[in-house]
Nucleic acid binder design. Structure first.
Lengths: 137, 137
DNA sequence: GTAAGTACGTACAAAAAGGTAAGTATGAAA
DNA sequence: TTTCATACTTACCTTTTTGTACGTACTTAC
């Protein structure tokens, strides 16, 4: 008689296919990469900025105070690859490229904006909790 | 006659005091730091993990697959300093420390969890958009 | 007797992220 | 004619983040 077999090991892709969702608590899950892009230093700001409509590269650069061109380009490429941002370029000189949110991007950015807004509106309380600002004397 | 004076420059703290909220698009705004902590690689996961209740250090470490002790400690300290996490330690040996969400932390973590959940549930679509997984044959 | 568990702090090293500056093609404005 | 603007890319360097490994003080399990 044979020794009892271990149940066959599932590969990540198979598990995902079964449960049809990611698991951020698992180190190998690809959702971690998506999260990284979306919550990256500039990812958050770009997503929120694009909620107010299509923007050109330089418009974004001016709106998101402090991004370098290098990082803005990088961030936009991540978000495009994840299917959150659509890029449309017109083959003219000087170059003209427009960025906008895809339907998927519209959804994530809503979540991201909710978080961003919460932080902005609760900053006073947070600073108070940090003991950095004595609230309203 | 004197030259016309520029309006007096406002410092950040003064602006904040007036509008009573942060502005993430401004490079100097302290809200950027809070965002950094909350959306940091492990910050997101710790906040979500704590939503299911009080956890000990080692419980969190096991739950959040892949964190090193160093980073978990660091992350918890950030979140504690921002007023999102409460730390309670019992002076016994071996050490026993419990972490939980403050009321403020309960609020941010809700936003963070909404984002995390969205990503988990939409992973299949995202991977499909990335062209990495051919959805349902 | 020895190993393991607990909640970190710390020093050192590797990896990742980010910034800076320069280059590109071309047309238009000064 | 020099400069500016556009949307990037690339090379190089600095800063930040993250990981690794070890130490601690004491108890419990083996």
């Amino acid at each position: 008689m044979t020794t009892p077999e271990d149940p066959p090991r599932l590969r990540l892709a198979e598990v995902l296919a079964m449960e049809q969702k990611g698991n951020l608590f698992a180190e190998q899950c690809p959702s971690r990469d998506v999260l990284k892009h979306v919550t990256s230093r500039w990812g958050v700001l770009v997503l929120v900025a694009l909620r107010s409509g299509t923007h050109r590269f330089s418009e974004l650069r001016r709106k998101v105070d402090g991004v370098s061109e290098r990082m803005l380009a990088q961030t936009l490429q991540w978000l495009e690859a994840d299917g959150f941002v659509a890029r449309k370029s017109y083959p003219i000189v000087p170059p003209h490229v427009e960025y906008s949110l895809t339907p998927l991007g519209l959804e994530v950015s809503a979540k991201v904006e909710a978080l961003a807004d919460w932080i902005e509106y609760n900053l006073p309380q947070i600073l108070a909790a940090q003991g950095k600002i004595p609230i309203d004397p």
